[in-house]
Each structure stands twice: as C-alpha cells, then as structure tokens.
Write a protein that binds this DNA or RNA. Sequence first.
RNA 1: GCCGGGGUAGCCUAGCGGUAAGGCGCAGGCCUGGAGAGCCUGUGUCCCUUCGGGGACUCGCGGGUUCAAAUCCCGCCCCCGGCGCCA
Length: 463
Amino acid sequence: MVYMWSMLYLLRNDPEKIKASQRARGLDESLVDKALELDLKWRKTLTRVNELRREHNKISREIATLSGEERIKKLEEARKLAERIEFEERVLRDLEEERTRVLLGIPNVIHDSVPIGRSEEDNVPIRFYGKPKVYREFLDEFLRQVKGFNVDYEVIDWKPKGHADMLDFLGLGDTVKAGEVATSRFYYLFDDLVWLDFGLLLYAIDFLSQQGFRVILTPYMLRRSAYEGVTTLSDFEEALYKIDGEDLFLIATSEHSIAAYHMNDLMDEDDLPLLYAGVSACFRKEAGAHGKDTKGIFRVHQFNKIEQFVFCMPEESWDWIERLIGNAEKLWSGLEIPYRVVNICSGELSAVVAKRYDLEAWMPAQGKYREMVSCSNCLDWQSYRLNIRFQRKGKKGLERGYVHTLNSTAIASTRAITAILENYQEPDGCVIIPKVLRPYLEMFKKAPKEVIYPVKSKVGKRN
RNA sequence: GCCGGGGUAGCCUAGCGGUAAGGCGCAGGCCUGGAGAGCCUGUGUCCCUUCGGGGACUCGCGGGUUCAAAUCCCGCCCCCGGCGCCA
C-alpha cells in the first residue's frame, strides 16, 4: 500500500479526479495538466542531476587517493562537472518549486458525497432536530429552509427580539462602547452572560472529555511557518491578525494550534486516533464580511470556543467526520436548541476541506437557520503541510504515511449565546436557562440558575 | 536582553574536512517441538528500473568556502544552564 501525499498520488495515478474536484469547486482545471507536465519534467531532470552527481562523487573520491599530475587533472575535471551540476540543480530547483507551488495551490479533492453547487442555496439539509418557534411572518421563509423535511414547529404570534436588541434590553452587553475603544465587532458582556459563556464552555469540555477527548489549552499565537500548514495564504490577509514587528499570528481557532502541536511528529498506528478538545479564544478579522451581521455578537472579532480535533489513520477519517458531527449534535440537542445539519456544497468549501457539515441553529428573531458548528474532514491537506505522519507494520517492514485531520466546533460561546437569547426568550423578554447548563452555573453563587432577567446597568451610561 | 552548552535517521549516542560509526527499538530471515536467547539482513526522503536491483539526497533551517562540509565561516530558529528583567 502506498501512503504518499494524496495530491501527488492522484496527480500521477488519477488526475481526472482532481480535475473533477476543481470543476465542482468552480476552479481552473488546467492547473492539473500544468502540474502533471512539471512533475514529468522534474523527474527527468532529477534523474539527469543524479547521474551527474554520481559521476562527481566518483571523481571526488578518486582525488583523495591521487597526487601530482593525476590529481591536478582530476581536480580540473571535478571543477567543471561541479559547474554543470550547479546549473542543472538550478533548473531542478525551479521546476520543483513551480510544481510544489501549483500542487499546494490546488484545494483539497472533494468527497463524492459533497453536493455540487455554487452558493449557500445549494447546501443540502440532511437532518433536523427540535421544534422551532416560528414567528407567523417568517412561516414561508421557514418552510422554504425545511426543504420538504417533515419538521414539527410551533407558530408564535409575538416577534422575538433579536439577540443584539436583547443585549440592550437585558442590560448585559455593550457593543457601542466596545466599538469606541476597540472597533466594531467587539463587545463587553456582563454578569449573567459571562456566567453563561463559561457555563457553555464547561458543558462542552465536560461532555467531550467523557468521550475520550483530551482537554487542551493552546498558544493563542503561532509563527508563520506553523500557520502555513493549516490554512490558505488568503487567510493571512482576510482572517488573521498579525502581531506587529513579530513573526506571530493570533489564532483564528484552536484547530490551528492543535494541528500545529504535532508538527513533524511520527506517530505509531497504536497511538491513533488522538482526540483533543481545544479551549481557546479565537481572533478573526472578518475582512470579507462588510455589512453582514454588524449588530450584536453573532459575528465578532473575538470569542471563546471549544473545538474537537482528531488525528487519525487515513481509512478512519470518513467515519470520524460522522462521529464529530454526532458529538456536536448531542451538545446542541442537549441544549434543546432546534437545528438542522447541512452538507455544504462544493462551491462553498474552503481549500483545506474535502467535506464539511454545518450545524445551523434556528434563530427565531431572524427567521433563519444560522451556522453554529462547522465540522470538516481535511484528509492529509494539513498533515502533509505540517509533516504529521503515522507508521504501521506492513508486509515489507514499516509503512509510513500522512495522518488525516478533522475538526469540528463543539460550542462557540458568543454564537451559542445568541441562539439561547433568541430560542429561550419568553414573550416578556426574559431568558430561560437551558436545563443542561444549570449544573455548570450551580457552583457560582451569583450566577443565574433558571432565568436571566433584565438588569439596570450600574454604569448607567446605557439603558 | 547578555554569557556559556547543545540540536546527528523512531529514540539514545559517537564523529569535528575524505563522503554518517555504534546501541536500543522495530521488521524480515536462520535456529527451535514452541518461545526466548543467539546470529544474519534491513531500517529516513526521492528518482530510475528489464522488479534482480541501481543511484542521489539527508547531520535544526538558510547561505558561503572547497574537488570534497555533520565537521570551517556567516545569518536565523529552537532547547538546556547561568545572569538580568519581571507577574
């Protein structure tokens, strides 16, 4: 069995598969032919260089045993050969760089089960949970999003407040002041919402640690060389904050620091899978999102997140993606928040990912299902770039290859809070606390236990 | 930040201008009633192959000197110890 980098393997053995993936993503498929040609040239050149080097090594070895005329003659010969080798090596290096550049630029090859499509509209819902509260005016919109599934729902005649309005109404959040001192998309949260934030995180790590996930706190910054292994170049401009004057980037998710944790590692098959429940703040520029979700805390530059991360054997990753989305569903059905799981279409997938499920919570005030969880199989896209390998006993001694990596949100705090503020909102604006979170609030004397009520701000500037 | 020591194959260790030595682990083979011990071979990356094998590369990373660099020179990264600073 061959376990080379899957992209190079496919290029040499099944280039049509890469082309089909490129087409499905709406990208240029001629890159594949270009890579194929470069690879062929590179291999030919390498063979030639190897022959020259062999000759040079032979002469060089002879020189050590010679003296006088003979030695001088061979020295001259070696010098000339070295010049030629230098030239050919430059050609080789250029070819290799170009081939690598093209290959690294090709997005992950999508899985057969990924729906072909261009936009959000082409994502395919596969499961629904819960009984959404649907405001009468959103009924058509809701039915459209249910796409023929038989989903039980409850029509309500009062319009829930949006989560942004709820921050003001409850007096527990301030995005205006945050905008003044930081920029927009930041927030101050107070009291009950802080307890709720922590409660959500604790709930998630308590659950995941019982599923065999190792709880892990990670660096909040990574150097570029590590970061290049986990994401695409465009993310460095669009998503990541850079520390001024230093080779450091704030992490957008602990997925990145966890993947990087095993950079250059070689794992025994017996050690896999490795399961991690990452705990971290996440920092995102949201550069391409002007005008979207500008109010409130749905889309922010900084939030807390519990992340599931798996390193596994290649043949197990398609099983693991189902288990990860399953874990996320257990957490969210535990919260009793209505959601649907969608299979993300080819055109919406990032380059890193071969397949992705999103878990989208029903948002009663928006009349929409909105993304809460993103669950992805990255195959060897990250592990190749980070050089994370496994070894196993094969027929001819040890076999080595690249592990597969997967990641999935468990709970991202601010988004989960928005979902709770809208789904657990009573007509009077109070918010019931999901039962499953209550144990994690019990331990704090001042934390809310059953209901979040509006408060008058002690600062008095707002409300 | 300063001074010293260090980074060698999966792990540990030698080598300090002449083409990576040794040990452990692991795999295969011999031996055995079986196991162990012992002995032999192999052990990273890549290319070519008529599938027998042949060859190149690899000593933290990147340059330089040389016919030849793990070894000498320059820059950078990381680890350990000490000093300084510090929650």
